[in-house]
């Protein structure tokens, strides 16, 4: 028996789910309002007196609404979802439908960043803080570039930026993790 290996699952349009236009710029108030409305309607507690089939269906509907809300309220997950709807799933390794290669230049940049972090850690908390700030700014720029690409309909390009953003975010998490 082997370890499990992973592949992608079917796509659901979370925007349609919450009656929102399929684009990155989002009306936060509309999102919150619609989410609360739907939650009231579909929450399994509303079906406490229903048959087991209806109850199961309520759990599934509520799960979908919660997943949609979670994905859309966060700008990064929202961008990744749009890319996924465009046919590229960043959680897959498939060369066509999966996360694109971030590129050699970026991998070299990451190696340099790691070296810079080691140096900064030797120099003290202030140096780590400065480096962290710089990486955070770089991550922001990358996300913005990804969103611009989505708005321009360039899914593949958007996906590349979002992959780089993931690397940078993970790096930031590592810095924060070590600081604790």
């Amino acid at each position: 028996m082997n370890e499990p290996r992973k592949q992608g699952a079917g796509e659901v349009d979370y925007f349609a789910c919450l009656d929102l236009p399929r684009r990155h710029a989002i009306d936060r108030a509309a999102l919150e309002r619609r989410y609360l409305e739907l939650s009231r309607e579909v929450h399994p507690d509303r079906f406490a007196g229903a048959s087991s089939g209806e109850q199961r269906a309520a759990v599934e509907r509520a799960s979908l609404v919660n997943a949609a809300y979670r994905a859309l309220r966060d700008p990064v997950r929202r961008a990744e979802h749009l890319v996924k709807l465009g046919g590229i799933d960043l959680d897959l390794t498939d060369p066509e439908r999966g996360a694109p290669d971030p590129g050699k230049a970026f991998l070299i940049e990451m190696i340099e960043l790691r070296e810079a972090l080691e140096e900064a850690q030797g120099a003290g908390a202030a140096a780590v803080g400065r480096l962290r700030g710089a990486i955070e700014a770089r991550a922001e720029e990358t996300l913005d570039a990804g969103i611009d690409a989505i708005d321009g309909g360039e899914v593949r390009e958007a996906a590349r930026h979002l992959v780089i953003h993931r690397y940078l975010q993970r790096f930031l998490d590592e810095i924060d993790g070590e600081a604790h």
Binding site: A9, P44, A62, N66
Partner: peptide
């Protein structure tokens, strides 16, 4: 994560 919620994984 708000519950109920599901995750699917293909093996």
């Amino acid at each position: 994560a708000t519950i109920p919620i599901a995750a699917r994984q293909v093996f």
